[in-house]
Write a protein that binds this DNA or RNA. Structure first.
Lengths: 188, 188
DNA sequence: TCCTGTGAAATGCTTCACAGCG
DNA sequence: CGCTGTGAAGCATTTCACAGGA
């Protein structure tokens, strides 16, 4: 909405776009305080600012990518990231042949330097784009280096301490969901 | 469990691994019929077979990838896919310089050939790994060619007819979720 | 008039607890 | 004895419906 220049939007319109009822939209937003204006709706720039505050994306977040393969490169150049305040500050890979290669405006660093680098720069956010086998070991290293948020793409259930947040994107599960709705529903 | 050779598992054990209660696991599974064996638990190979049936992954699914960039390549070589019965049969890209290049054991084809190819092979599943700008246009073309399931990675809300299933993986939203839990919770 | 924020009602989901089977 | 499948109870979320502000 902000991009198209809209200045206000009602809960009904938001709900239509999100497949929710208007009441649901209002309830959800109300949890975070007084957002809207009766008779008017929600003021778009206001709302963007408030939601950014709530989500914690009102500031920039430094992050590291581990794994300089195709997935790592795809993520590094992903349009949505820099736009939303995520800033790539370092890339690591265990593959000797990849270390030293250019990676966007960065250079791939060896895993051996990872812990020190993360700690020195106080990086708390990491993207794990490595094969399944080394994923847990690397996750352990990330946690030891002070990382508390990991976005994981390896098809593995990572085990981490409770103070660390992991979001796993299971690509095969995504396809399975689609296929479930594609084939003739077996539900009652 | 199947991989580690376990032959049976109880709802409690399943729940522990999935962060669910045992009752929840039983309720969910019971929706799909009689699965388990009282006093024993669930027989692992049996269960895998039945769940595959339910999900529709008991057969192979042909799929196409649109977008031969880093993301497309990462997805093509993703470990989880072939293992779960997803079979890549074609890759398309609108970039002239990419057309004809090798892509795994396939060759990148021009978008112009997409509709005909999909139709001739009866492909119903496609992965959309293109930049945001052309995403909707390509989605329209996929739908017109008979595709009814799309896994979308472009940070765009695709509009499709109701008989078509879209799963969008919003990578920035994944990071936002993590950051929300990282910064000091503002919830009551 | 249009639209929010919010108690109260309706609906849906999760947990409990137990009969019954191997 | 261990464990499932399942009604019933307990919670949680969603929807309704309306007072009140711009």
């Amino acid at each position: 909405m902000a991009e198209t220049g809209r200045t206000t939007i009602s809960s009904r319109e938001l709900g239509d776009g999100l497949d929710l009822t208007d009441a649901q939209v209002r309830k959800d937003l109300a949890y975070f305080g007084q957002f809207g204006h009766p008779g008017v709706g929600y003021r778009v720039p206001d709302m963007v600012r408030k939601l950014r505050q709530v989500l914690g994306t009102d500031r920039n977040w430094d992050m590291a990518i581990v794994g300089a393969g195709n997935l790592g490169r795809a993520l590094a150049s992903h349009a949505g990231f820099t736009m939303k305040g995520f800033h790539l500050v370092a890339v690591f890979d265990s593959d000797e042949t990849k270390v030293g290669q250019p990676f966007g405006d960065k250079v791939v660093q060896p895993i051996a330097q990872m812990a020190e680098h993360l700690q020195r720069h106080g990086i708390r956010l990491a993207i794990l784009a490595v094969p399944p086998e080394p994923a847990q070991t690397i996750a352990d290293a990330l946690v030891a280096a002070g990382v508390t948020g990991i976005l994981n793409f390896a098809p593995v259930r990572l085990v981490v301490p409770p103070n660390v947040t992991v979001n796993s994107v299971d690509l095969a599960a995504q396809l399975e969901q689609i296929v479930f709705r594609l084939h003739d529903d077996p539900l009652p």
